[in-house]
C-alpha cells in the first residue's frame, strides 16, 4: 500500500444548528486522484475548507503530508494548492498578471515551475493580456488551475472545478488532472457530477455530511446489490408511476429519458416486466438489462441512509 497523503478522522463541523459534517473519516494515498462525489449541500466545501485550514473542525482531526490542519496550518499552506468553488482570481487583472501575482505570493518565479503548468497555460497564453473577468468559463478554470499549481504544491485541492463549464472543457480539464497525477501530486477533487467519479482512482460518496461509501469506482459498483434494467417509453412520468406499483421492484429512478429499475437478482426478468407493462396498457417501450453506474449506487445508498 502506498503512503497516506491526506487523512481525516471523525471530522465534525456545524454551522449553528446545521450539521454540515458528521464524523467524516477517510484517507487518501499519495499520488492518487480522490473524488468526493455528492450533490450541493452534501458538505464537500466544508470538508475542503477544513482541509485547507480555512475552518477549524468542531471535533476530529485531519492531516496532510503529516501536517496537522489545525496546529501546522502555516507550514501546510506552503504545500497546498487550492482552487475554491467560486472563481477566485482577480477579474480586473489580466491572465498574465494573475499568474505573476500568485507566483509572487508563494515567492517562486513563473519559470521555476513552468513545466508543471506548461500544457495548461499554453492553451490560454494567447489571451495573456486579456482581463480574467472576460475569459470563458473553461479558460477561467485553466487559469485558476495554473495559479493553484504555480508553486508546485504537493497536494492539490479542487472544489467543484468543473461546475458551470461546458462538456468539452470538462473533459479537457480531467485530462489535465490525469497528467498532473503523473508528476506525483495528490489530487482531491469535489464534484456533483457522477460521471466524473469514474475518472478518479478512488471516490467517497458523500451526502448529508456523511460518507456513504469509499473505494475505487469499480469496487463501489460491485457492491450494488440489485439486478438493473433500463426502460424508456414516450411518457416517462407515466411509466415511472406505473413501474413504482410493480410489487417485486426494489427501485425505480429517473435518469434523463430512461428509468432505471432494480430488482433482487433472479427474481425478475425482462418478460416479467414486459408482461406487467402490457397489463397496464403500455405497449411501446425499450427495455434492456444494464450494468449499474456510480449514480445508481449513490441513489441506492442514499435511500438506505434515509431509511435508517
Amino acid at each position: 500500500m502506498n503512503k497516506v497523503s491526506v487523512y481525516g478522522k471523525g471530522l465534525t463541523k456545524s454551522y449553528g444548528k446545521t450539521e454540515a459534517l458528521k464524523s467524516v473519516s477517510f484517507s487518501v494515498e499519495k499520488g492518487e486522484i480522490f473524488g468526493f462525489i455528492g450533490p450541493d449541500g452534501a458538505g464537500k466545501t466544508t470538508l475542503f475548507r477544513l482541509l485547507t485550514t480555512l475552518l477549524l473542525p468542531d471535533s476530529g482531526a485531519a492531516s496532510i503530508e503529516g501536517l496537522d490542519v489545525v496546529k501546522d496550518y502555516r507550514r501546510l499552506r506552503q504545500i497546498l494548492g487550492y482552487m475554491p468553488g467560486r472563481f477566485s482570481l482577480y477579474q480586473d487583472l489580466s491572465v498574465e498578471e494573475n499568474l505573476r501575482f500568485f507566483a509572487g505570493i508563494f515567492k517562486v518565479s513563473i519559470s521555476d515551475n513552468y513545466h508543471l503548468i506548461a500544457d495548461i497555460y499554453e492553451q490560454i497564453a494567447p489571451f495573456a493580456k486579456r482581463r480574467a473577468g472576460k475569459l470563458s468559463g473553461g479558460m477561467k478554470q485553466k487559469l485558476a488551475l495554473s495559479c493553484a499549481l504555480i508553486h508546485k504544491p504537493e497536494v492539490l485541492i479542487l472544489d467543484e472545478p468543473t461546475t458551470g463549464v461546458d462538456a468539452v472543457s470538462r473533459r479537457e480539464f480531467w485530462e489535465m488532472l490525469i497528467r498532473l497525477k503523473q508528476s506525483g501530486i495528490t489530487i482531491l477533487v469535489a464534484t456533483p457530477y457522477m460521471d466524473e467519479a469514474i475518472l478518479c482512482d478512488r471516490v467517497a460518496l458523500i451526502q448529508h455530511g456523511t460518507i456513504m461509501a469509499t473505494g475505487s469506482p469499480a469496487d463501489i459498483i460491485q457492491t450494488y446489490p440489485h439486478k438493473l434494467f433500463r426502460i424508456k417509453s414516450q411518457n416517462t412520468l407515466q411509466l415511472l408511476r406505473i413501474m413504482r406499483q410493480m410489487p417485486e421492484l426494489k427501485s425505480a429512478e429517473m435518469f434523463g429519458e430512461y428509468i432505471h429499475i432494480g430488482s433482487s437478482p433472479n427474481k425478475m426478468n425482462e418478460s416479467d416486466i414486459a408482461a406487467f407493462l402490457n397489463q397496464n396498457n403500455i405497449r411501446q417501450f425499450d427495455l434492456e438489462p444494464m450494468e449499474a453506474g456510480i449514480e445508481d449506487c449513490f441513489m441506492h445508498l442514499m435511500k438506505q441512509q434515509s431509511s435508517t
Binding site: 480555512l54 499552506r77 487550492y82 475554491p84 467560486r86 477566485s88 482570481l89 477579474q91 505570493i105 515567492k107
Partner: peptide, 13 residues
C-alpha cells in the same frame, strides 16, 4: 466578497 481572500489565506502570506 469575491472569494479571493480564500486563496490569499491558503497561501504562505
Amino acid at each position: 466578497e469575491l472569494g479571493t481572500m480564500e486563496v490569499l489565506l491558503v497561501s504562505p502570506l
